[in-house]
Computed example of a mutant assay.
Amino acid sequence: MNLALWLVAGLLAVIALTGGAIKAFVPKEKLAATPGGAWTRSVSAGGVKTLGVLEILAAAGFTLPAAAGIAPDLVPVTALCWIALMAGAMITHGRRREFRFAALNLAYLALALFVAWGRFGPGAFTG
């Protein structure tokens, strides 16, 4: 169970870091031209960058607290925050009728739900 939780948290960290870096460092106009990026047209450039920074922080939160042994309880808290972020992404893509992206966000949400459940429950870090 512990290995599965580490693998899923690591996968989510890679996903969050990739998506976050793109949102934080790629110009909004270029993002708007990519598949699934049209939503950026209705959000300010600062809003897009803020989401990018939040995703980068999530990438750190999925792995670093447990790896460093400092406040490992932040891992499931990060997973709960990721669930909220993915719910918002699903709503955004759903309203735009971009259902394949909403489905992808649902998959990410489900993975984070597994991490939150596991790390708050049977796979909790013990001190």
Rank of each mutant, 00 (worst) to 15 (best):
W117Y: 12
A71L: 14
E55H: 08
A67V: 13
L85A: 10
P65R: 04
G127V: 15
A68T: 14
G94S: 09
S44E: 10
I83G: 01
L51T: 08
G10H: 12
A32H: 00
L51K: 03
R97P: 02
I83D: 03
M90T: 02
P27T: 14
A21R: 07
A32W: 01
L113C: 13
A59F: 01
A79N: 06
I83W: 04
S44M: 09
L17M: 08
A67C: 07
P72L: 03
A13E: 09
V75C: 03
A110D: 12
P27D: 15
M90V: 04
W6S: 05
V26A: 05
V26L: 09
W6V: 11
L7S: 13
A124V: 12
V43W: 08
P27A: 15
G19Q: 09
N2K: 11
G52Q: 04
L17C: 10
K30S: 12
K49D: 09
W39H: 05
K28M: 08
A107I: 13
P122K: 11
G36M: 10
L113W: 13
A13F: 12
F99L: 12
I15D: 05
F125P: 05
A58S: 11
A71F: 10
R119W: 00
H93R: 06
E98V: 11
L3D: 15
K23L: 11
L74T: 01
K28Q: 09
G46I: 10
F62M: 10
L57T: 03
N105A: 14
L80A: 15
F114K: 13
K30T: 15
I56R: 10
P35E: 14
A59P: 00
T40N: 02
L31V: 07
S42L: 08
P72H: 03
G47W: 13
A16G: 05
L51Y: 01
N105E: 05
G94V: 06
F99C: 10
P76W: 05
A112L: 03
G10W: 10
G69C: 14
L106V: 07
T92K: 06
W82C: 06
L64P: 08
I91D: 07
